[in-house]
Amino acid sequence: MIRIRNIHKSYTTGQNSLHVLKGIDLNVEQGDMISVMGASGSGKSTLLNILGILDTYDQGEYLLNGLKINKLSEKKAAQLRNKMLGFVFQSFNLISFKNAMENVAMPLYYQNVKRKKRNLIAMEYLDRMGIRDWAHHLPSELSGGQKQRVAIARAMITNPKVILADEPTGALDSVTSLEVMDQLQEINKEGITMIIVTHEHDIAARTRKTIRITDGMITDIVNN
């Protein structure tokens, strides 16, 4: 599903060049669930951004579902993100003036799905996440766990190949964290590939494989 070869990435700020990724190789098969761990500044977020086509890389090769991802136009990148990828963020990133249902339906809006139809689909996904009753609430009226469930429903609504989760439990208490992880595992069982960036060991332990990144290189791959 994901195949990256010798990926390099540097950030240039003024005269200093920061070599963030120093040759990453990684294969993620369809239906896999892996976690990425590493200290802050290790390059794990950068890797996730490249995988999410939110950022570009300088060198190497990235194949997503057999498609070469390189120097895409912004429009093409946006369309690929929309169809192939789902994102879950630590801080949920819901749109504050839209209710839960509208937030979930948002990716379908960019596929030009009619309003009625996409709201109907959004309700199904909210139902699956167990928060149907909160569909018409604004994010500010939801608890952290509920917000993250909305975000997960939003990531799933386009039926993506891969869900990329950046510290999905980072803002949640331990009980809620486990509930959210249960749900992510459920989704993974349906065959959606999942990549989770985390720094919590018990979260990483619930994935099949943990990749450790240190100073821009993969230093360890552990099967859990």
Binding site: G52, L94, M106
Partner: peptide, 16 residues
């Protein structure tokens, strides 16, 4: 900015 960032991550094209 944040809202627009979210929209772009979810598949909004620059033109939209």
């Amino acid at each position: 900015t944040k809202e627009i960032g979210i929209r772009k991550a979810l598949g909004a094209t620059p033109a939209s």
